Structure formats: structure tokens, C-alpha cells
Computed example of a mutant assay.
Amino acid sequence: MFRTVLVAVDGSEISHRALEEALAVARAMQASVHAVHVVQTGVYPTMILNNLEPPDIAQQAVLDSLEREADEILADTDRRAAAAGLRITPHKRWGHPGAEIIALAQELSADLTVVGSHGRGRLDRLFLGSVSSYVVDHATSTVMVVRAGPTAQDHGR
């Protein structure tokens, strides 16, 4: 029995499918749903975010753009959940996507973490994505990896 479901979203078609599957499980189990979007950062943006170095105008513009994109993705996720008759709790994180997904899953005591098989990167489309692979390797609870193809709605669940 799943009580708390966490789904990772990045705005890609596969993450929309992952959300659909997470919502189907949540509905069937009467579980709460949390959605996380992680803004991937490298060392330098992380230093800026941790106030180790003030950003210049160009860097701040990039950070602002990433922030807006994250907000848009989470707002779209909320709309999709509402259309399915469910409510989600959104979470925005900055850092390594896999590590942040695992950390949030542990903080929430999530019983199930749902991720897409690949994200928005080109190489991720060829193999099991590095984020989903990281989550599978490091999760302490059940992980559902959603591949491209039919969704729960297509199966009549």
C-alpha cells in the first residue's frame, strides 16, 4: 500500500506520462501526491545560490530564467493533477536532480517514487536516463520508472 507518492517532473513528454501513472496509483491507493522539479546546477551556480559569490547580471538572468521555467513546470503539473481530480504538493529544488529526488523522497517518507525513463537531454533518450538510473540505484523505497508508451489511462485503469 502506497500512502505517499513522489513524482519527478521536468516538462518533458515522458514526465507527463510519469505524472499520469503517479496520479493513477495515488487515486487507486488514496495516497497523497508530491511533485518535484529539480533545477540542475553545476558547481558555479551552486556557489552563487549558497551566497559564496554574488552573481553578475548575466548569471542572475540565467538563474531567473531557470526559476521561471521551474515555476511554469510545477504550475502545469498542478493543472494536470487538478484536471485528473487530484491535488499535488509541489516542490522546487536546486542541485543534482537524482540526489535531490532521493533526499526529498526520504524527507517525505515516500512509499513510491515515480520517474520518467529519460529526461530532456539528447543522450538520455538513448539509454535509461542518468537521473532515473541514479534514483533506482539510491532509493530506499519502491521506484517506478515510466517508459514512453501507453499510460495507465490507455489501459483503462
Rank of each mutant, 00 (worst) to 15 (best):
R27D: 13
D111S: 05
L23D: 00
H34P: 08
A61G: 14
I88K: 03
F2G: 09
L123R: 10
H138W: 04
H155P: 05
H37K: 04
F127V: 15
G149Y: 08
R147P: 13
H155G: 09
V36S: 05
G119A: 08
L104Y: 03
R120Y: 11
I102N: 05
A152S: 12
E67T: 04
H91L: 08
S32T: 15
D154K: 03
F2C: 10
L74G: 05
T113I: 14
D76L: 12
A35C: 13
V43R: 09
A75E: 15
R120D: 10
E13W: 02
R87M: 12
D71T: 08
S133A: 14
A84F: 01
A81V: 01
T140V: 14
V38D: 03
S117W: 06
S15W: 00
E107G: 05
A84S: 12
I88S: 04
A81Y: 00
D111M: 05
V43Q: 11
R125V: 11
L128S: 10
M1G: 15
A110S: 07
S15A: 12
P45Q: 02
T140A: 15
E100G: 04
V25E: 13
H138Y: 07
L19D: 03
A58P: 00
L66P: 00
V5G: 09
A139K: 02
A26W: 01
H91M: 08
E72N: 11
E72G: 09
I101Y: 02
L126P: 06
A61Y: 03
R80T: 01
G42V: 01
A99M: 08
L86M: 14
E67H: 04
M1R: 11
L63R: 00
D10P: 04
A70L: 04
A58C: 05
L86T: 02
A148H: 11
L104F: 04
K92G: 02
L23Y: 01
S32L: 09
T151D: 10
A58I: 14
E72Q: 12
A58S: 14
Y134C: 06
T151S: 15
L108F: 02
F2S: 06
D76H: 08
V146Q: 08
Q40L: 05
A110Y: 00
P54N: 01
A31S: 15
D76A: 15
D124M: 08
M47L: 14
T142A: 15
D56W: 02
G95C: 09
V135N: 07
R125Y: 06
L112D: 03
R17I: 07
A22H: 03
V62A: 10
A148S: 12
P97I: 02
A31R: 06
T140I: 15
A82D: 11
L86V: 03
E69H: 07
S32Q: 13
R80I: 01
V114W: 05
T113Q: 02
I48M: 01
I14H: 10
R17F: 03
V7W: 11
E100F: 06
E53C: 09
F2M: 11
V39E: 05
V135P: 03
V33H: 00
